[in-house]
Amino acid sequence: MTKSRITFMSTVPPWECDAVEHFTVGYYFQKLEYATASALAACGLDATDPDAPRMTRCQVRFDAELRKGDIYRIETVQLGPEALGHVLVNAETEAVCTRFHQALSGPVPVLPMPAREDKSVDIAWEWVEDGGAAEAGPRSRDGPWLETGRDVVTPGDLGLAGRLGAHACVLRFSAAGEHLRNRIGMTPSYARDRNVGFSTVRFDLRCGADAAVGAPLMTRSSVTSVGRTSLAIEHRLSRVVDGVEVARLAQVGVHLDKARRRPAPWPEAIVETAKGLLR
């Protein structure tokens, strides 16, 4: 069993939950940044240093929900010279809720493991694609991308090192997803009337160029596949001024029955509309 280091502990406040009534994915990445900073500090590195190793790619599996009032911790292991693994655990039930495979821009020293009497969480990482490589090529080709977001970088979007934070990118991708699903018929009123939502099960986030405070940003999104209950989407966030890509996210989620907390089949009309947007 791999030893792990506790790098973050907290609770889920109501204001960090979304319309699906669970912990918002953008805040997962905010807490991931804090856990990473704790791990780097244990290695003698300063996460506020612009030259410190930073996240370049993060593959995520969402295995179980966290909801309002739940308590959790993040445990971190070193998976390689330039890779960390983080496991988010429900502190009440000890269930593994989320797994993050994080590729970094440079090597980190060996992560020290404190002596602990309790057992660490034993996690498999065979689901990680491309061996977790930071520079793996994009899975998509050029195709019909829909404009799904426009805004500007604010001071609150910056991470600990003063760069545009991954959490800020993911929050934009979440909003973009709502606009994309609106185009296929999953409108806000549809979701309210049927008590359904869209729940993410897989992420593959790639971090690109930085964007300064005040820089206008644009998000474009496209459907990559549709199943009986699932939908795969890709988002691209770019600087408006020069078109340089800031971040890219491949996302898989399910049409969620909020009462049963289980995937539900898509209506045929939505499936057909989504298929019409496939690249």
Rank of each mutant, 00 (worst) to 15 (best):
M218Y: 00
T200E: 13
V77Y: 01
L231R: 00
S221F: 02
I74M: 12
R192S: 09
G137I: 04
V196L: 12
T187A: 10
L164P: 03
G106I: 06
P107K: 07
D51Q: 15
V108P: 07
R239P: 06
W266H: 14
T2C: 08
E272D: 13
V153F: 08
M55H: 01
E16M: 11
Y34K: 05
A168E: 04
P109D: 02
P114N: 11
C97S: 15
T24S: 15
P114S: 10
P50D: 13
K275L: 07
R206Y: 00
H86E: 10
V152F: 12
V252I: 07
F29I: 07
M55Y: 01
T200R: 03
R192G: 00
Q59G: 10
L40F: 04
L278T: 07
M55P: 06
G276D: 09
P112Y: 05
C169T: 00
E117D: 15
E272I: 01
R54C: 09
P216V: 00
V96T: 15
T98C: 15
K31P: 02
A95H: 08
P107L: 07
G276A: 03
R139M: 12
Y28I: 09
Y34G: 04
V271Q: 07
L231Y: 00
T224D: 02
L277M: 15
G132Y: 11
A211S: 06
M113Y: 11
C58Y: 04
D257Q: 06
M186F: 08
L79I: 10
E129S: 12
A41Y: 05
D157V: 05
F29H: 13
A37L: 03
E117L: 14
A215P: 03
T93W: 08
C169R: 00
V152M: 14
V223L: 05
P267H: 03
K3H: 06
S189G: 03
A161E: 12
T224G: 02
R279Q: 09
Q59H: 05
V223H: 03
R150G: 10
G80E: 11
A259L: 12
E117Q: 14
L205R: 00
E33Q: 14
I233T: 13
L79Q: 14
V252L: 11
L160V: 12
S230W: 00
I123H: 08
L205A: 04
E147N: 08
P107V: 04
L45W: 10
R67F: 05
S10C: 09
G80W: 07
D122T: 13
A115W: 11
P14Y: 03
A211F: 01
F100L: 12
S120N: 15
R228Q: 05
E33K: 06
A209W: 01
M113Q: 11
A41M: 09
D157N: 12
R183D: 14
E33S: 12
F8I: 00
E268Y: 00
A211N: 05
V196P: 08
D210T: 01
R139Q: 15
Q78T: 12
R183A: 15
V226S: 01
H22F: 15
T24Q: 15
M9P: 00
G44V: 10
A212D: 13
T7G: 03
Q78R: 14
V240A: 05
L146V: 11
M113G: 04
L40E: 04
S140A: 14
A47Y: 08
Q30W: 09
D122L: 13
